[in-house]
C-alpha cells in the first residue's frame, strides 16, 4: 500500500520548467496553462491530490525549491 501525501507549490517561486510534472510517477502534477504568476510564467500545481504518494521526486528535482511535501501519518 503506497503512502499518501500532498504537495504545496509556491506559485511565485515556480518558473514553470515542468521538470516536476514529467518526473511525477503518478502524474498528479500539471502546469497551469490558463494562468500565470506575477512573472508571467505558468506554474505547476497539484492536479490530483489523491494520486500523490509523497515520494518527494518533484521536490528533489525542482530547481527552485518551490515544493513542500507532506505525508499522511500512518
Amino acid at each position: 500500500m503506497p503512502q499518501k501525501g500532498y504537495v504545496e507549490i509556491s506559485v511565485e517561486v515556480c518558473k514553470g520548467c515542468n521538470l516536476c510534472v514529467i518526473h511525477c510517477p503518478t502524474e498528479c502534477l500539471a502546469l497551469n496553462t490558463s494562468d500565470t504568476n506575477s512573472y508571467g510564467l505558468h506554474y505547476a500545481y497539484l492536479v490530483d491530490e489523491d494520486k500523490c504518494i509523497a515520494c518527494q521526486n518533484c521536490a528533489v528535482i525542482c530547481p527552485d525549491a518551490a515544493i513542500t511535501v507532506y505525508k499522511k501519518v500512518a
Partner: peptide
C-alpha cells in the same frame, strides 16, 4: 493538513 507531517521543505 491535519493528519499529515512535513517531510520535505526548502
Amino acid at each position: 493538513k491535519k493528519g499529515y507531517e512535513l517531510i520535505y521543505k526548502r
